[in-house]
């Protein structure tokens, strides 16, 4: 592994590289995110934004109470979000626990959803507290079952106590396992990283280690994907592109529940990383309730009156 020529894989070089990163102006980041959130997106732009957002959704169910039936229903919805309207695009992927990956893949293929990916959460999601052997097996299981995307969590405890090399090595290991079979998304759980400086540091650490995507949160901890955190991560991928000419994706997850929030995220992407990132291969939104709101807003734009949740599926 070359790690983009930025580090050589040793503790010293990683620490040296992370030290070169500039700090984040917290007040500035909050203010900029708040300012961008005031943009008003209407009519045809809104229509485009809704369809783009739908195609970027990673439709997620990560509950202890998940059943094969629920996952299959979710897959059906992922392929045809609105059964009464074939112009609605499919979502980006479904995101499930690793024992549901096989069921999801099989059902998607069965109903003509080959283009919809299956993302598996991995490495002892959501806490990341398990031995490396368990994490490797966890990932292998998901890959063997047909996962096309692996959403791994980092060991926040190690990161916060400064053992960056441990976090780095874990990502490198999972990256190697994924190989060409699956995209790797690295989850930081930004709600536990405390500062924006840490978010920026974690972003670069993950990108150098080989992540295809960096993802804010598990959805199990609040706050999750707040606009300033997403802004900091988008600035990180933008800066990383300037260094390496490689585009890394960003996936906010958790707390994005309505169309307004989703459109705010798209504005952040466009204004920070740039329009090149406005594609499902570089930007995803991890959500479950969001899709229904997007569909209802879409219906409203078509019909001219507000829709009711009674007209979209419950899950």
């Amino acid at each position: 592994m070359s790690y983009y020529g930025l580090v050589d894989g040793s503790d010293a070089s990683l620490k040296g590289f992370l030290k070169t990163l500039s700090g984040v102006d917290q007040v500035g980041a909050d203010a900029r995110a708040a300012m961008l959130a005031t943009r008003s997106i209407k009519t045809t732009s809104k229509r485009w934004a809704i369809d783009t957002a739908i195609s970027m959704v990673d439709l997620t169910t990560l509950e202890g109470a998940d059943t094969p039936g629920k996952v299959q229903a979710l897959c059906t919805k992922a392929v045809r979000p609105d059964p009464s309207d074939s112009t609605v695009p499919s979502v980006g992927a479904v995101c499930v626990y690793n024992d549901m990956v096989g069921i999801a893949r099989q059902h998607l293929d069965l109903i003509g959803g080959g283009h919809v990916g299956v993302a598996a959460v991995s490495t002892a999601f959501p806490s990341g507290r398990a031995s490396i052997e368990v994490k490797i097996q966890d990932t292998k299981d998901a890959l063997d079952a047909g996962a096309s995307e692996i959403d791994m969590v980092i060991d926040r405890g190690a990161f916060l106590s400064g053992k960056y090399i441990d976090v780095f090595n874990e990502i490198v290991l999972i990256r190697e396992l994924c190989g060409k079979r699956a995209h790797l998304k690295v989850i930081f759980e930004t709600g536990e990283l405390v500062t924006y400086d840490n978010v920026r540091k974690a972003s670069f650490l993950a990108m150098v280690a080989g992540a295809d995507f960096i993802k804010t949160s598990t959805g199990k901890v609040a706050p999750a994907a707040t606009p300033p955190v997403v802004l900091v991560m988008l600035e990180a991928v933008r800066d990383f592109y300037a260094m390496t000419q490689v585009r890394i994706g960003v996936k906010p997850a958790g707390g994005i529940r309505n169309t307004k929030d989703a459109i705010k995220q798209l504005v952040l992407v466009n204004e920070t990383a740039g329009p090149e990132w406005l594609t499902p291969s570089l930007f995803r939104i991890g959500a479950s309730a969001l899709l229904n709101d997007l569909l209802m807003q879409r219906m409203k734009m078509d019909d001219g009156y507000y829709a009711s949740p009674a007209y979209v599926t419950i899950d």
Partner: peptide, 8 residues
């Protein structure tokens, strides 16, 4: 009219 046409 908005009240009347609102589906919810």
């Amino acid at each position: 009219p908005w009240m009347a046409s609102h589906m919810d």
